[in-house]
Amino acid sequence: MISEFTRTAVPQLVGHELEFSKSQHEEKFHSLHEAESVIREELEELEEQAEVCRKLFEDLHSDTRQDDKDGAVINAKYLAGSAEYAAYEAIQLAAMCLKLVEMAGREDEV
């Protein structure tokens, strides 16, 4: 279960990342193809980080099976850091998807 704070904070973080992207790059994508490419890149980065998390969990699982508390704690620490990085990637992915949605919305207004 996700806390109400997190449920509220994540959309705010996505919105902030979207605004940051627009300030660092262009306000909108140059084309649908560019949008798709950027979104694919963010998805691939998220998938890579999720794979790191999976491998770290496998190590933690192995440590648990061997009753190696110290090893499990170390792997849990690394897994927490990796999961945070995966959250960053997921936020960037969501922001780039919203950037495409905004681009499509502006074109409909013209």
Rank of each mutant, 00 (worst) to 15 (best):
I2D: 02
S3C: 03
S3Y: 04
S3E: 03
E4M: 10
A9Y: 08
Q12P: 02
V14W: 00
S21I: 08
S21K: 10
S21C: 08
S23M: 13
S23N: 15
E26H: 07
E27W: 02
E27F: 03
K28C: 12
F29P: 01
H30S: 11
H33F: 15
E34N: 01
E34C: 01
A35M: 00
A35Q: 03
E36P: 01
V38R: 06
I39L: 04
I39C: 04
E41H: 09
E42L: 00
E45T: 01
E45R: 01
E47V: 09
E48W: 03
Q49F: 00
A50P: 01
V52F: 05
H61S: 07
S62V: 13
S62F: 13
D63S: 15
T64N: 10
Q66R: 12
D67Q: 15
D70S: 15
V73T: 12
I74M: 11
K77W: 14
K77R: 15
A80H: 15
G81I: 11
E89Q: 15
A90D: 03
Q92V: 02
Q92P: 04
C97A: 12
L100K: 10
L100M: 11
V101Q: 05
V101R: 06
E102I: 02
E102L: 05
E102S: 06
A104T: 12
G105A: 14
R106L: 03
E107S: 01
E107F: 01
